[in-house]
Design a protein around this nucleic acid. Structure first.
Lengths: 105, 105
DNA sequence: CCGAGTGTACGACTTTCGTCGAACACTTCA
DNA sequence: TGAAGTGTTCGACGAAAGTCGTACACTCGG
């Protein structure tokens, strides 16, 4: 059977203060993760599949921060933990944020 | 004559990376300053006129961060240093940011 | 000219944050 | 069963950030 692992804990974007979202996106590594995830299909990317210069431990930490900021949802799929950007919920709670995140500039 | 003091150094919002803006707004004190300044007329508020729980030194530091993030412009007016929110420039460089900052919630 | 008011600069302290290595748990596949 | 792969947790470390007190510079009003 599957799901023996502790399920990741999420927070509704509506319960997240905007300063927490800003803090989450202020880190270059997390911003890069969010940008890459934004350009990917839901549940298509495992945690280890992101091209960022950080080890496994740091990566796990960053995903916890993003989860706690309501930006990312995670689900266990076999041995891997797959991700999805919470586009709709975030857009509803913080309109314009997504456009701001992957601005060309 | 006026202006003997070193003029505050500003940065164009277009030259500011979005993660710098996020970092600037991630601090509760700075977020509060920006919100109060947003609701005020240009050049109407001196640095010391903001209702935040921090001393003079800390306040000066926070204004330097906001200036460097392109969010605020300062000008010396006699003994006081008055502020203005860079609404138009910021809106052009980061559309939707202002709405995000003083969202009701 | 002196005193009060405003803001900056500097140094020191404390806390937080990002990073890593190692150990562990779980899944999958041979 | 055993080995490889994936991700979390823990402790430790160094860097960065926020705060404060003090000293300093400047302006304005008696």
């Amino acid at each position: 059977m599957a799901g023996h692992r502790a399920a990741p804990q999420h927070r509704d974007p509506r319960d997240v203060p905007v300063e927490t979202v800003f803090a989450a996106l202020a880190d270059p590594v997390r911003l890069e993760i969010v940008r890459q995830l934004w350009g990917s299909e839901d549940w298509a990317r495992a945690c280890g599949s992101f091209d960022v210069a950080v080890g496994k431990a740091g990566l796990s930490h960053h995903f916890a921060v993003l989860r706690d900021a309501g930006l990312v949802e995670q689900r266990d799929e076999g041995a891997r933990r797959v991700n999805r950007a919470r586009r709709a919920e975030v857009e509803a709670a913080f309109p314009g944020l997504w456009q701001l995140v992957n601005q060309p500039h």
